[in-house]
Every structure is written in structure tokens, then in C-alpha cells.
Computed example of a mutant assay.
Amino acid sequence: MDRKVMVVSVAVGFLGLLSAALAFAAEATRTKVSDVQTRRGGECVYPKSPALALGLISALALMMAQAIVNIVAGCICCKKHPHPSDTNWTIGLIAFIASWVSFIIAFLLLLTGAALNDQRGQERMSFRDYCYVVKPGVFSGGAVLSLASVALAIVYYVALSSKNAQSWGADQNQGGIAMGYPPQANPVFVHEDTYNRQQFP
């Protein structure tokens, strides 16, 4: 594997793990029903929670990982490939689409969970006199999908990089074969009388 591919894969993988870890931390520190206090007059008192900051940083790390892969590798839909049936190209295309789908869902889950968890101070009761809190599993789902998105992005990048390396190697081999066999001139046949005339004028 190329050194550049290794460095990019490690960096993107680290950001993906960071995003998932922060999302799981946000899930553990989110505001729960037992943390909310109710007062007379229909007011819900929410405690402070770091889930908002954790969710936003997790979404930011995921966005950075996705941006790095797509900037370095480029969009596979914008590139022309002479053999669309190639295995690496097919794997890269599937991983590219699945990575973007999982990224969008994970990003929305993380932002939604962070926004809904941003309940501070006193709020009026809503939803049939219930204090609203983030449902369990929102941040966890975002964490799992962020890992899937980053893993698929790495697969897409590695598959695309290996395809480019194979194409470059094939071009080099063809160039070496062409240089190894210099062009030969067509043979010229001379009649026997020509030599006789030169020797015996």
C-alpha cells in the first residue's frame, strides 16, 4: 500500500473513532427523564449536560473525515474509467454511495440529538404535559453510522487508489515493451547481376 494511502486512511480512521467515541459519550451524558424536575405551573427544569458539545464535536469530526477522503480521492462519478466492469471500480462505487448515505444519516442524528438535548433552565411543558427529552439510541445510532461511514470511505479510497496504481503500472509496462524492441527496417532484395556488374565492369 502506498504511504500516502496509509497516512490518509489512518487520519480518517482516527477521526471516525473520535466521532464515534464522542457520540457514545453524548449518549451516556444526555438528559434523561429522571434528571428533569417539574414544578407547579407546568415548568420543566433541565440540568446542564455536556451532550450538546459532545454531539456537535462528534458531527464536526465526522464531517472532517468525509471531507478529507473526498478531497484526496475525488468524486468517483466525475472520473472516466475505461473498464466500468472492473472489480475495484465497482467496489469503490458501492462504497462511495453507501458512505455518503450513512454519513448523511449519522450527521443528522448527531445534530438532532445535540439540538434536542439543548434544554436548559425552565421550559414550559409540552407534548401532553410531558417534559421532552432525547430518546435513547439517537447518539448511539449516530456513532454506529459514523463508524460505518468512515470505514466505507476508506474502502472507497483504497479501491480507487489501487485502481489508479494498476493503470499506471500497466502504462509503464507497455512503455517498456515498446522501448525494448526498436523499429526494424524492411529488408531490401538486390538482384545478383548488380554485384556482378560492380566486380566486372
Score class of each variant (00 low, 15 high):
residue 99 S to I: 01
residue 116 L to A: 04
residue 179 M to E: 13
residue 168 W to R: 14
residue 181 Y to P: 00
residue 154 I to M: 05
residue 137 G to N: 06
residue 175 G to P: 00
residue 145 L to T: 02
residue 16 G to N: 09
residue 159 A to N: 10
residue 147 L to C: 02
residue 174 Q to I: 11
residue 142 G to H: 08
residue 125 M to K: 13
residue 35 D to V: 07
residue 120 R to H: 13
residue 72 V to Y: 10
residue 9 S to E: 00
residue 55 G to S: 07
residue 122 Q to S: 12
residue 23 A to R: 05
residue 16 G to T: 06
residue 100 W to H: 12
residue 149 S to W: 04
residue 184 Q to L: 08
residue 35 D to S: 14
residue 84 P to I: 03
residue 161 S to F: 06
residue 149 S to N: 08
residue 113 G to H: 02
residue 119 Q to P: 01
residue 109 L to F: 15
residue 183 P to K: 11
residue 10 V to N: 02
residue 133 V to M: 04
residue 179 M to V: 10
residue 173 N to Q: 13
residue 199 Q to E: 09
residue 191 H to V: 04
residue 67 A to R: 07
residue 97 I to M: 04
residue 13 G to K: 04
residue 147 L to M: 07
residue 183 P to M: 08
residue 114 A to I: 06
residue 2 D to W: 01
residue 148 A to G: 11
residue 20 A to Y: 03
residue 187 P to Q: 04
residue 54 L to I: 01
residue 197 R to D: 13
residue 185 A to N: 12
residue 165 A to P: 00
residue 198 Q to W: 12
residue 110 L to A: 07
residue 126 S to P: 01
residue 24 F to E: 11
residue 120 R to F: 09
residue 30 R to G: 02
residue 34 S to V: 14
residue 66 Q to E: 02
residue 175 G to F: 09
residue 69 V to I: 15
residue 15 L to E: 09
residue 132 Y to T: 07
residue 171 D to Q: 14
residue 88 N to C: 03
residue 132 Y to A: 06
residue 26 A to R: 06
residue 18 L to G: 14
residue 150 V to F: 09
residue 102 S to P: 01
residue 150 V to G: 07
residue 78 C to L: 15
residue 92 G to T: 09
residue 193 D to T: 08
residue 34 S to D: 14
residue 26 A to S: 10
residue 181 Y to D: 12
residue 98 A to I: 10
residue 179 M to T: 09
residue 67 A to Q: 05
residue 20 A to T: 07
residue 65 A to D: 03
residue 132 Y to Q: 08
residue 30 R to K: 15
residue 98 A to R: 00
residue 98 A to G: 04
residue 40 R to P: 11
residue 177 I to E: 11
residue 97 I to E: 00
residue 161 S to P: 05
residue 161 S to I: 03
residue 33 V to W: 12
residue 30 R to Q: 15
residue 157 Y to A: 08
residue 6 M to N: 02
residue 180 G to K: 10
residue 46 Y to G: 10
residue 187 P to N: 04
residue 161 S to W: 06
residue 147 L to S: 03
residue 200 F to N: 13
residue 33 V to K: 15
residue 92 G to P: 10
residue 36 V to Q: 11
residue 149 S to L: 07
residue 170 A to T: 09
residue 78 C to G: 06
residue 57 I to Y: 07
residue 41 G to F: 10
residue 27 E to Y: 01
residue 63 M to V: 11
residue 200 F to Y: 13
residue 97 I to W: 03
residue 148 A to W: 02
residue 86 D to R: 06
residue 74 G to I: 07
residue 49 S to P: 04
residue 160 L to H: 10
residue 70 N to K: 01
residue 80 K to S: 10
residue 83 H to Y: 04
residue 180 G to S: 15
residue 174 Q to E: 14
residue 111 L to P: 01
residue 192 E to I: 04
residue 80 K to I: 03
residue 171 D to P: 00
residue 191 H to Q: 09
residue 97 I to D: 00
residue 189 F to E: 09
residue 128 R to G: 01
residue 138 V to L: 11
residue 112 T to L: 12
residue 53 A to Y: 11
residue 71 I to Q: 09
residue 184 Q to D: 05
residue 27 E to P: 01
residue 158 V to K: 14
residue 156 Y to S: 13
residue 155 V to H: 05
residue 38 T to N: 12
residue 91 I to D: 02
residue 29 T to W: 07
residue 77 C to W: 05
residue 169 G to E: 13
residue 96 F to C: 12
residue 118 D to A: 14
residue 69 V to L: 11
residue 146 S to C: 04
residue 161 S to M: 12
residue 164 N to E: 15
